[in-house]
């Protein structure tokens, strides 16, 4: 936790304590920790002079943020319109079967988090699955299993 808090100080310094950069700071904290721990938000509130209620409002407003710990590997399935008509619901079924997780859930060993997203802008590949930033278009059941199995 001390590591988290000292990281926060660095991030705040990087944005010169500018309140308007709050969302950017939260994005960096989310990326580093894979979630937004409450003590970290309390420290942000204190250092930036922003009420904690406002920080929680922002943290729960945007999909990119999580107030609960997430897995080391993020698996996202796009459910945007184009992917939807190309079979995204079926892809999601295959992914939930493989991971044994429902969207929004994190595995008990904190290895995987499954999310749904709306439109990544590569619709010609749809339906799209993203694992740790790597895009997979129209993955077969076998490919899904292989990609998941390769995550350490």
């Amino acid at each position: 936790m001390t590591k988290n808090l000292s990281n926060v100080n660095q991030i705040i310094a990087k944005y010169q304590g500018d309140q308007s950069a709050l969302i950017q700071m939260l994005l960096e904290i989310q990326r580093e920790n894979r979630w937004l721990p409450k003590p970290v938000l309390a420290r942000l509130s204190q250092k930036l002079g922003i009420p904690i209620s406002q920080i929680y409002h922002i943290a729960t407003f945007y999909k990119a943020f999580s107030l609960i710990p997430q897995g080391r590997h993020t698996v996202s399935v796009c459910l945007g319109t184009a992917c939807h008509v190309r079979g995204a619901p079926r892809l999601l079924d295959r992914v939930t079967d493989t991971l044994k997780l429902n969207p929004g859930e994190t595995s008990v060993d904190y290895k995987f988090t499954l999310k749904t997203v709306n439109c990544l802008g590569c619709c010609a590949l749809g339906p799209v699955m993203v694992v740790d930033g790597e895009y997979y278009g129209k993955p077969s059941a076998k490919e899904i299993e292989k990609v998941i199995a390769n995550c350490d």
Binding site: S53, Y56, H57, F61
Partner: peptide, 15 residues
């Protein structure tokens, strides 16, 4: 709570 009391004890969450 925010504008008059300036306490911010209660707030919105979610969207």
């Amino acid at each position: 709570c925010s504008e008059i009391k300036q306490a911010n004890a209660i707030g919105f969450v979610g969207r």
